[in-house]
């Protein structure tokens, strides 16, 4: 069965979505991510969607769900690399991507995750969401 690989990088889990996700694959990815995060004690999840041409309401909901589920097991989620046309379409569609952070690219996403975790660990960031 087809699956999206999840890479572990220290405290983070890294996922690059390089194919058009059909529903089952997206649902499996969400479940796999949360299971892996729980098992490994990962503090952050980074999802690279730079190769994704379209995010519809289902896909958007999956991304939000990943963010919400990860939060419950103390991990932050960052979605990186959204194509401008996808961002424009999401706004027009009226889809709120709640519960996830975004960054322009993987590098900035990693930096954001590190700062979030540092903020939580030191409890110096009362404005964190």
């Amino acid at each position: 069965m087809e699956r999206i690989p999840i890479l572990r990088m220290g405290q983070f889990l890294l996922v690059t979505i390089q194919i058009d996700l059909y529903d089952r694959l997206a649902l499996d990815l969400a479940a796999d991510l949360v299971k892996t995060a729980s098992k490994t004690g990962a503090r952050g999840i980074l999802i690279d969607i730079s190769a994704v041409d379209i995010v519809d309401s289902f896909m958007g909901r999956i991304l939000s769900n990943i963010g919400a589920m990860a939060k419950l097991i103390a991990a932050e989620t960052v979605v990186v690399g959204m194509q401008p046309a996808v961002a424009i379409t999401l706004v027009e569609l009226g889809l709120p991507l709640n519960g996830i952070h975004t960054a322009l690219n993987v590098e900035k996403g990693m930096a954001l995750l590190r700062s979030k975790i540092a903020g939580i660990a030191g409890e110096t960031d009362p404005n964190n969401d």
Binding site: D53, I54, D56, I88, T89
Partner: peptide
């Protein structure tokens, strides 16, 4: 590209 993305996203919603 933006119009394409609009169309494909709408198509995806309706197919779903």
């Amino acid at each position: 590209l933006v119009n394409q993305t609009y169309l494909i996203t709408a198509a995806s919603e309706l197919a779903r």
